[in-house]
């Protein structure tokens, strides 16, 4: 049934190529994050706490 439905479609290979691309990029980011030094992210992580004097508890 589906063979007939997709007969002559030239877009099916997109699924395979895109999936491989996705997995490669994702694994790349994952490996990089795992090996990177955590100290390199400290300043970025503190961004919400900078610049204003809003307290923590509901005033």
């Amino acid at each position: 049934m589906y063979t007939a439905f997709y007969r002559a479609s030239e877009y099916l290979n997109l699924t395979v190529v895109s999936t491989v691309l996705f997995v490669a990029l994702f694994l790349g980011v994952l490996v990089w994050v795992a090996v990177e030094k955590p100290q390199r992210f400290d300043s970025a992580a503190r961004q919400p706490l900078e610049g204003d004097a809003e307290g923590s508890e509901v005033p």
């Binding site: 955590p38 992210f41 400290d42 919400p48």
Partner: peptide, 28 residues
């Protein structure tokens, strides 16, 4: 959540590295 949770807890997000993985894997 990533903005208000650190504000309310008065400390930075637990792991910025995790947030990078979280973000890209989620949108992918």
């Amino acid at each position: 959540m990533y903005y208000f949770m650190p504000k309310a807890a008065e400390r930075p997000v637990y792991s910025y590295r995790l947030s990078i993985v979280h973000f890209w894997s989620l949108v992918f």
